[in-house]
């Protein structure tokens, strides 16, 4: 069942504090978090979070199109078996 709208999106309280602190510091920190259940809010856009997947922290750079999703969606917990040598391309940022 979907979450009631009147409650608003779920966010662990400390995440907002951490995000504000990181933004205020101006340093390019990666905010470590175990809170995979937290919904991505507009105020997180532009920040990079390290989301714990049970083994390690996966960097998640928050962009606009991720708003409304949970952090856990971007840090898979199962072993990722790549097709050894798939024709993947990457772009230099």
């Amino acid at each position: 069942m979907a979450r009631s709208v009147w409650k608003g999106p779920f966010v662990d309280g400390y995440m907002l504090k951490k995000a504000d602190k990181a933004r205020a510091s101006g340093r390019h920190e990666i905010i470590k978090t175990w809170s995979r259940r937290t919904t991505i809010l507009p105020q997180f856009v532009g920040l990079t979070f390290g989301v714990y997947n049970g083994h390690k922290f996966l960097p998640v750079s928050v962009t606009e199109h991720m708003i409304g999703h949970k952090f856990g969606e971007f840090a898979p917990t199962r072993i990722f078996v790549a097709h050894g040598g798939t024709e993947k391309k990457t772009e230099e940022k």
Partner: peptide, 11 residues
């Protein structure tokens, strides 16, 4: 050693 992408950019 590798580059992944789980939907939040290349890692």
């Amino acid at each position: 050693t590798d580059i992944h992408n789980f939907g939040a950019g290349d890692i």
